[in-house]
Design a protein around this nucleic acid. Structure first.
Lengths: 221, 221
DNA sequence: AAAGAAATTTAGTTTTGGCTAAAAATCAGC
DNA sequence: GCTGATTTTTAGCCAAAACTAAATTTCTTT
């Protein structure tokens, strides 16, 4: 039905659009490790297949069919990740590349039988929700970092405003959409907190910053 | 490492060579549903990669690396078939196309972990032996039903082709992998035979069907 | 509002794996 | 051993998905 390349584009567009950034040809190219010119070519093809709305120089976004396809790919990817970790004993950090291949195996029956076999898991080993056959998935509740629980793994999901100053600060602190962190300590005095990243660096964040950052609980952990 | 197309060529060459026929460019083309000219192109590429010995107009055969690759693909294919039937509940006649896709997922670790998870199965659901990591596999002597001895208990082990028509007929005759039967009579006139199943029903089989069905002697009986 | 910078698209090329048509080599029948 | 038939290979072309370089559009800055 759709080629591996097409599926990868659709998946990337979905993920980038969802993370709030305005998706540009350049962003998409760097996300897919390819060149902007290649992206333009593919965007036209995807539009011709009704997966995408695209107007040149203006921008693009997924059409309903594209969104449906994206969710179906994500469903396959996350089910396979769950299988690899829970049944085959892989570590959750090892499974991404293998799932990238498995997700392109085309068979709706396979996906659904795998889902049944695994017991309809609702979250993959990274804590991301698994869409059902209809593309519905658990919506991750966004929590303000100031209100988030201590000691649990959190994932940065969004920011409240897009000011240059905030984005600059996030960059400096190595915080981005998808960054995983744990709140180690919170000081009542000024509402600042100490936070540990997955890379094990620990640093402190002010209340002001904490107020702007929205996170989700990593459900798998 | 190797492309899907390359893997499919190697697998086809292995299967055709093993079934004894002298493998010609034409045969290979029809087996792969492609044209002889395309086959010639690919043969050159496979030779350049040291998977094949090839001399133009003379013929070709797998080189050691090619044989190793073929066995590794077959291992993956048959392990996935076993998984699909035993774990996901597919019927053994439904799994071929899906396994054709899964067999091209590249990860030695995946294959070996799947093997462990499945408990090192030695035969796939069609009765074909599964090679181990080193490419060794059970050599189960398969006898064509046409050549099988009278009066001895036989076990249906495999079929020569996977056509829908054949599978449909086998289903109607209640023949499946593992079915035990005894040849009661054979008619020289048209090579048809009378066969008794364990359930005691006796029926006759045409030479055409007999040619497609492979059995093993039940050594225990 | 214009100029320079940045992003995007077009044009033309490459690689992989296929195709058709034509040429070359081998095989079969006499 | 020749001649025609068959098989195999070559030559040239196509489509997908990438690339580079150049052109075009939009954005930024003054």
């Amino acid at each position: 039905m759709f080629s591996v390349a097409e599926e990868n584009y659709i998946k990337s567009i979905y993920h980038l659009q969802r993370s709030g950034y305005n998706v540009s040809t350049n962003e998409l190219a760097s996300h897919l490790q390819t060149k902007p010119a290649s992206v333009t070519d593919m965007l036209k093809k995807l539009q011709a297949k009704n997966l995408l709305h695209y107007e040149k120089y203006y921008g693009f976004k997924l059409a309903p069919d594209g969104r449906k396809l994206a969710l179906s790919i994500i469903r396959r990817h996350r089910l396979w990740e769950y299988f690899l970790v829970e049944k085959l004993g892989f570590g959750w950090e090892e499974v991404h590349d293998i799932a990238e291949q498995l997700e392109h195996v085309q068979s709706a029956e396979l996906t659904d039988k795998l889902d049944v076999f695994l017991g309809h898991p609702r979250f993959d080993p990274h804590g991301d929700p698994i869409p059902d056959q209809k593309g519905k998935m658990e919506s991750q509740k966004l929590i303000c970092l100031l209100d988030a629980p201590l000691g649990k793994q959190l994932i940065v999901a969004a920011v409240q405003n897009q000011s240059v100053e905030l984005l600059e600060m996030l960059k400096a602190k190595r915080l981005a959409i998808g960054t995983k962190l744990i709140i180690k300590k919170r000081f009542a005095f000024d509402e600042s907190m100490e936070v540990k990243l997955s890379g094990n660096d620990v640093f402190s964040l002010s209340d002001k910053l904490g107020r702007e950052v929205l996170v989700t609980l990593n459900q798998a952990s």
